[in-house]
Amino acid sequence: MITRRSFCKKSLLIAGGLAVPLAALELFDPRKLLAEKDEKGPRWVFLVDTRKCVGCGFCVKGCKVENEVPYDANVTRTWVERYVVTKDGKTHIDSPKGARDGFPEKGIDIGHGKLEEIRDDDIEKAFFVPKLCNQCDNPPCVQVCPVGATYQTADGVVLIDRKWCIGCGYCIMGCPYGVRFFHPVYHVAEKCNFCYHRITKGMQTACVDSCAFGARRVGNLRDPEDPVTKVIMTERVNVLKEEYGTKPQVFYLGLSKEVK
């Protein structure tokens, strides 16, 4: 026979037991704790101001030369897109040769060597958007690599091991931003790495150095005094394709809804 007293005691015990979250039962991982404590190094991030970009394409040229991406191959680690929104509500987008030579033609490149001319009076708004690797906090390209050839460093940059890459192309398909491509010489995956050889020496990336308009900046998110960090923390910045949950670390000022 169950007494009222023991019934009440047991129900309270069960209710209390159910309330304990699973996380409370998890054992501490000392290595994880140490890693979190030791996060003193940089976390590289990027800031793009689309209002300042004039589409000169010096960043693309500088990047290709600095990072030995074959100059005439139609692949590039960074590129600039032109958005022309006309008064009829249409958005015209192009990026001839990734804007390696800027935008030498006024007409919009619609492929096959054809240009679509747009009258000046029809333009509602038009702007340029530089794109590069977002060095995501949750990089889908790294998750899909079957051999551990692409990985994220402690400072947040996603790198590719050219010796280890088997060229399967999963990462190129996995990147929602389309920043990865096959290197025409090494036949492995290739992407922007924030000029890892420059930022780790205290320099700026090649694209930042070649931008005369201050449209591109690289910074360290773990340094609260970094001017780029201050902008990201206090101004209205946006990221690309937030809904994918990749946590991209390239922040944009002046982004418009037409930009995907």
């Binding site: 209002r51 800027g102 030498p104 000046d120 038009a126």
Partner: peptide, 11 residues
């Protein structure tokens, strides 16, 4: 090259 783009510094 003159590009009359409102909303961009290029303009």
């Amino acid at each position: 090259t003159r590009l009359p783009y409102p909303g961009s510094n290029r303009g």
